[in-house]
Amino acid sequence: MIRNRVIVSGQVQGVFFRDTCRRVAEEHGVTGWVRNLPDGTVEAVFEGTPTAVGSLLSWAHEGPDLAVVDEVRRHEEPPEGLTAFEIRPTPW
């Protein structure tokens, strides 16, 4: 089990990024969360097998059809044992 935190920048808010991310994560058996950040980026945490997390990382570089991804910054973290994937509120 591995865990990666990503910050995705570009045109990634208002394009169904979070909802599509949740759906793709569930399809790949990845747990974690996704949320918009006040600066216009999207933050997500992916936990799962290296192959499953790798699939989500690849997806994050493209995003949903309406997104324009400029950059994905990835940080490895210790897994927390999350059991679901959720959309979290924006931290204002």
Score class of each variant (00 low, 15 high):
26 E>N: 09
25 A>G: 10
76 E>Y: 02
16 F>D: 08
33 W>N: 05
40 G>D: 05
15 V>M: 04
43 E>W: 09
44 A>H: 08
40 G>A: 03
54 G>E: 14
33 W>G: 03
3 R>G: 02
43 E>L: 12
13 Q>G: 03
45 V>Y: 00
21 C>W: 02
81 G>T: 03
67 A>N: 13
14 G>C: 04
71 E>W: 05
27 E>R: 15
37 L>H: 08
39 D>E: 12
73 R>L: 13
61 H>G: 10
85 F>E: 13
79 P>R: 08
33 W>C: 04
45 V>D: 10
67 A>S: 15
48 G>W: 04
54 G>W: 14
20 T>R: 14
75 H>S: 05
61 H>N: 08
4 N>E: 12
41 T>V: 12
23 R>F: 01
2 I>L: 13
60 A>H: 08
58 S>I: 02
12 V>I: 08
20 T>Y: 09
28 H>G: 00
56 L>F: 06
82 L>N: 11
64 P>Y: 04
55 S>F: 10
17 F>V: 04
85 F>Y: 15
46 F>W: 13
47 E>V: 06
77 E>G: 05
35 R>C: 13
47 E>L: 01
34 V>N: 04
66 L>D: 15
24 V>N: 01
26 E>W: 06
32 G>I: 05
28 H>R: 13
6 V>P: 02
7 I>D: 01
45 V>S: 11
30 V>F: 05
89 P>V: 05
21 C>H: 05
65 D>C: 00
58 S>F: 02
78 P>K: 13
68 V>C: 13
88 R>H: 14
47 E>M: 03
35 R>Y: 11
78 P>G: 11
45 V>K: 00
36 N>S: 09
66 L>E: 14
14 G>Q: 07
80 E>I: 03
88 R>T: 05
3 R>M: 05
86 E>L: 05
88 R>S: 09
83 T>E: 15
22 R>H: 07
9 S>D: 13
82 L>I: 11
50 P>N: 07
65 D>E: 11
25 A>K: 06
48 G>R: 06
4 N>K: 11
51 T>P: 00
25 A>N: 03
28 H>E: 15
43 E>T: 07
65 D>V: 04
44 A>D: 11
57 L>Y: 02
58 S>A: 13
9 S>Q: 10
22 R>A: 13
73 R>A: 12
80 E>K: 14
33 W>S: 13
29 G>Y: 02
11 Q>G: 00
54 G>V: 15
61 H>I: 00
17 F>S: 06
14 G>N: 04
70 D>A: 09
45 V>R: 02
58 S>R: 13
38 P>W: 10
22 R>N: 01
84 A>R: 15
44 A>K: 07
14 G>R: 08
5 R>P: 00
80 E>V: 06
14 G>D: 07
6 V>W: 01
70 D>S: 12
33 W>Y: 14
44 A>W: 11
33 W>I: 03
63 G>F: 10
27 E>F: 10
15 V>H: 05
67 A>M: 14
34 V>M: 09
27 E>N: 11
59 W>G: 01
54 G>C: 12
45 V>Q: 12
87 I>T: 03
59 W>L: 02
58 S>D: 15
39 D>H: 04
19 D>W: 05
23 R>G: 00
45 V>F: 01
58 S>V: 04
69 V>P: 12
86 E>T: 14
9 S>P: 02
69 V>R: 06
82 L>Q: 14
6 V>E: 01
85 F>Q: 09
28 H>P: 01
